[in-house]
Each structure stands twice: as structure tokens, then as C-alpha cells.
Design a protein around this nucleic acid. Sequence first.
DNA 1: TAAAATAGCGTACACATGTACACCTAAATT
DNA 2: AATTTAGGTGTACATGTGTACGCTATTTTA
Lengths: 211, 211
Amino acid sequence: MVGIRAQQKEKTRRQLIDAALGQLSSERSFSSLSLREVAKEAGLAPTSFYRHFSDMDELGLTLVDEAGLTLRQLMRQARQRIEKGGSVIQISVQTFMEFIESNGNIFRLLLRERSGTSAAFRAAVNREISFFTLELCDYLQQANKLDAEVAYLQANAAVTIVFSAGSDALDADKKEREQLAYRTIQQLRFIARGAMELALRKESNKSLPSS
Amino acid sequence: MVGIRAQQKEKTRRQLIDAALGQLSSERSFSSLSLREVAKEAGLAPTSFYRHFSDMDELGLTLVDEAGLTLRQLMRQARQRIEKGGSVIQISVQTFMEFIESNGNIFRLLLRERSGTSAAFRAAVNREISFFTLELCDYLQQANKLDAEVAYLQANAAVTIVFSAGSDALDADKKEREQLAYRTIQQLRFIARGAMELALRKESNKSLPSS
DNA sequence: TAAAATAGCGTACACATGTACACCTAAATT
DNA sequence: AATTTAGGTGTACATGTGTACGCTATTTTA
């Protein structure tokens, strides 16, 4: 039995979260939201906010978690598409761009708080991105039989490139986004190719350490 | 003749700029500064602020310009070092890391406002970064005889990677920064190598379009 | 069924903010 | 020398903020 009370509480907690997410936009960052605004949007008295979060910071960290969740759903979705065949890089970029289009504000939250003024926020965002990176790293190691270090470097670089493109996509129109996607794909190919070549060289250096 | 008045005005204008820059830190962003705080730090009455800037936004854009200037000085410095010989990538990364170390707050300003809530700020920052990228692009085209498009893609990717590493460096200690620099160098090599390989392939496709 | 716990409300307060306005003083212009 | 211009000041006000405190109503617990 969940208790009618706990149920209600969870519901208004969600209202607060959704209210905050709903107020995010290209000209409104989380840090510019006030406790009162969020409470009002959620249909609550300002002081009721405290029944759910001790702080706006606590709400913010919850939002970052939420965003991380969305990011992981994204990965799952990309993997599913990849299994059906096609260029891994192309499908990944396309999937990511679709994500940006429909989850712009969540992505903005991550981008902004990653360089924000709260060390806790920065750490939380980096944690989520690092999950993302490590998953990609595993994939690369398995699919391309890459050395662990090289795979990590490639994954890290790829995520950086894709996130940066996502950031640019936020301010771009449809046509620009297509160009952006195309360029991003090229850049990811540079990285993949370079990683492969240099990994091979590393490999041969191992067997011929004197060369 | 400059006029003792114009001279004084320029001086207190600088005081405002320096006051703002001086208040920036890892836990204080430009957007979190208030007009009153900046005026106070500059030793001015709040209302005197308006004699120099109509807005905090106007001050902010001035700071971004200032930051862009610093960025260009950085490039010049890197070029000088490169002329004296050594690995281009290694020297560039090292120079950039030194820049971060002594100009952390200026770099933070760029990072933050790039994803900030003001379209004007975002545009201004992107303009500065794009200068940076185009300079690198020219260099790559000239030094490596690269195709214009490939050179741009490589320059863009490289700048993205380096800025991202810079962002990470801001929260890192000395040892982590060294590792970060090492990894960044590897990643830039991936990109350079990949760009070269794929540019060659593109070249051969031109002469043998049927293959 | 009585008592305790708790989500939500309204009031209230101290504080910081941007900026309008009138004023002063010294440099610049005439 | 007389007048205008303009950087700087202090006062004042409306507005928004976080949050302490006491209250109510309803669910939960004993």
C-alpha cells in the first residue's frame, strides 16, 4: 500500500519538476529561475516548495538526473536503430540531432550547468556525460577491437564533437542543422580513422619496441 | 588633444571593466553579477554606472570583446613558439593550457556565455571562436596543403576538442591537467591523421570518379 | 477513536535589485 | 569671463527575492 498521502506528494513533486523544466528556454536558464516562480508555475504557494526540496539547488540536481535519464534513453534508441543496419556514425548523429530538436531545453540544461557556478552541478553533469562516454567506449572496444586507451580517447573526442554540434544546433534552423549533421559525421570519421591508424602503429611498436 | 575629461572617463570605464572581470570566478558568473556590485567594486555610486554603459549587457559584450582579444594574443604567442620548432600540436596544447591557468576567468566567461541566455552574447562569443577557428584553418591549409573543406572541418574539430579540454582543465589540479593535455594531444593527432587520410581519398576520388 | 504527523497556505520581514530624479562640481566651449 | 556639458553623488521608490512562523485540514499512526 502506497498511502494516498505519499502518492499526492509524489504528484506535486513532479509538478515542481515539470514546472521548472517547462520554464527553461533559450533565454531562461535554470539558475535564473526563482523558487517563487517555479512554485507559482506548479500551482503552489512559495513556502510549500520546501516540503519537497530544501533548495533550488536540490531541484536542479534532480533535473540533471532527469536529463541523464533522457540521455540514456537516447543511447538505447540509437543502438536499436544501429542493429537494423546502416552507418553507425550517421545513425548516431541523426538520432542525436532528433533528440536536440525535441529535447532542446533538457540539453541546454546540461550544457549550461556543465560550466555553471555550482561545483556540485558541474560534477553531476560530468557524471552523466561520462556514463555516456563510457558506454560508447565499450562499444568501440568491442566492435573495433580497439586498445582500451585508444577507445576511450576516441569515445571522449566523439562525445565532445557531438555535444558541441548539438550546442550549435540549438541556435540553427533546419537547413543549418543538416549541414551541421553532415560536418559532424565527417569529423567523427576523421577521429575514427585516425584512432584506427594510430592504434595500429601503437600495436606494431609493441611488437617491435626497438623501431 | 585628448582632454583631461575624456581621459578620466576612459579610466573609470576601465575600472568598471576590471571590476567585473575581477569578480568572475568559478562560483560567480557574469550574469550573476549585479550592476550595483560592479559599481561598488569599481568605487562608483550605482547610478554612475550609466555614464559608461546603458546596461550590464553592454558591459558584458565589452568583456567578450576583451576576451576575444586575449584569445588572439594567445594565437600569436603559440605561433611564435611554433616557429622555434617542435611539435605543432604539442606546443599549441601546452600554450593553451598555460592560458587557461592564468586566464581562467576570461575563459570561463566565454564558455558560459556561449550557452547563456542572451542571443547577443552567444553570437558574440561564437564570432570570437570562429575567428580563432578560421586562423587555424588558414594555417592548416597552408602548412598541410589541405583541401579547404577538410581544413575547415579539422580546424573546427580541433578547436572544439581544445576548448572542451580547457573547460575540464578549469576544475582540475596540476596532475590531472597534465593527463588532460596528454590526452588532448592524442586526440588532435587522431583528427589530423584522419583528416589527412580522408582528404587523400577524396583527392583520388576526384581523379578516378568511377572507382 | 484519539493523537500525531504533514502537505499546503498566508502573512510578514529583511534584503537586494534597477533606475528615476535632482543636484553638485569641474572641464569644455563659446 | 560666461555658459554649457557631463561625470559623479545621494535619495527614493517599486519590485522581486528567500524564508521564518503560525495555522488548517487531512491522512497516518497508536
